[in-house]
Amino acid sequence: MKRINADQVHFRDLNEQLRNSNGEVELRNVCGQRFIAAGFSRRNIDIHGVPGNALGAYLDGATITVHGNAQDAVGDTMNEGEIIVHGNIGDATGYAMRGGKIYVKGNAGYRAGIHMKAYAEKYPVLLIGGRTGSFLGEYQAGGLIIVLGLYEGQEPIVGNFPGTGMHGGKMLIRSTCEDIRFPGQVTAQSATKEDLEQVRAHIERFCELFGYNVEEILDAPFTVVTPDSKNPYKQMYVQN
């Protein structure tokens, strides 16, 4: 494994060093460097410290593990690969991601999974272990968002306005969501056994990564959220 000491290294130089390495790479002392591994493929990158915004943007097949928290726009427009965060994560996680998987042990900020897509065999998965801020899955067009609610505190499992503008994909929230207000164009209902079976593999992976028990996690009420229409604006216009 190649080790890179990121202390005081500019993001441009850091990415240059990463670009010149193959296989396994470990970054030490990362402190806010942005754009780490933007557009990368075919590497395993282990990050110690806190990477800056846009970690793994346009990611195309690499695996990134963050041993700590991550900031905003992780996995922006990601196409393939895996991002694992052993901590909390900032805003706009997985913005417009089309493929690949993001696993977060802790909480996520605002607008997680915003405008996620799916296409052909590409099916992105965003799994948040804790809770999320407002606007979860806004404009969601495809893929799967799972929020497990493994956190301490009195705040709701998801913030305000989850699924606003949602027109594709699915959200699974480990809660009855009694206090959560969903917008008019989505349907939120109790998850069936089949719903949970479908996503079991992702939850198993989460448990394997972060040391949880699958059965304990599945032994709780889940709410599944899906859009009523993939054409929400059909009736909005008249030809002039």
Partner: peptide
């Protein structure tokens, strides 16, 4: 659909702002 990389028949919505 292939070029936009979204499923057939789904509205392609470009929101007014970039969310980030």
């Amino acid at each position: 659909s292939r070029t936009r990389m979204i499923p057939e028949g789904t509205d392609a919505i470009s929101p007014a702002p970039h969310h980030d």
